[in-house]
Amino acid sequence: MHRRILAGDRLIAAFLTGCALFNYPLLSLFDRPTEVFDMPVLYAYIFAAWALVIALMAWAVERPFK
């Protein structure tokens, strides 16, 4: 029971994190014509944030709680 509540809370946190990262205005901070790691900064940012949110979700549901 406890586990489920915690997993749920973590997923909601991941959801809210994603909502913030994937939308205006955070998105606009990276909307500029420069490059990082040989790719447009916006493109790099979205994929990095995306991977982060997925990692958060995996952590939320798969990692056993102590």
Partner: peptide
């Protein structure tokens, strides 16, 4: 991205 966010509420 939309499905990704919804899946975090999938649980």
């Amino acid at each position: 991205l939309g499905p990704t966010l919804v899946m975090s509420l999938g649980w």
